[in-house]
Amino acid sequence: MTELSDEKIAEAIQSGEAEAFGEIISRYELKLKRYARRFLSLKEDVDDLVQDVFIKAYTNIQSFDPSLRFSPWIYRIAHNTFVNELKRKQRVGFGVFDADIVLPFLPAKETSDADTLNEELKVEMEKVIDKLSPKYREVVVLHYYEELSYAEISDVLRISVSSVGVRMTRARQKLRELYNEENN
């Protein structure tokens, strides 16, 4: 089972091999917990939230199309769950008419710095990432920490790739400002 792709495992679960879901949990538990902690800026336990994501993933597994990638699908479930949690706790609004996603922008080029961003820099970024607004924090977390491509983030957040690029550029600018403030 361990050598199979996520998509093949999902296909096996769909055809009735429920135990195969254990492999999905093993592969995504840490990733989703990390995503939850960073996106929600939570220091405490996120087990219940992530468990909720896996339960939703299992009950809705028949809606997954095995010809597509599995990770954006499960991250989409996680995103919805975490956004609901943010709304519940902080009453944060995720408006429909967000200028970043409504207006057209020039296609943003995806940089390869997610691969090259060294650990030291990630630690520095983590000090200020909590100060970003959730919509910018989330793209940073998904790209730099969860290593999702812009196209995958576009599927998770259901926004255009160019909007992902715009959010990423603004998030980087904001991070730079916050970092400079922190160090001066």
């Binding site: 679960i13 769909q14 429920a18 135990e19 879901f21 254990g22 949990i25 093993s26 538990e29 087990d47 992530v50 468990q51 896996f54 339960i55 299992y58 009950t59 809705n60 597994i61 028949q62 809606s63």
Partner: peptide, 24 residues
Amino acid sequence: NDFKNNILERIKTGELDMKPHWHF
């Protein structure tokens, strides 16, 4: 681990059930 075990246990006991394909 307990986390994984707990979910798989709920699946085995039938507490968690997947929605059928026709539902979607």
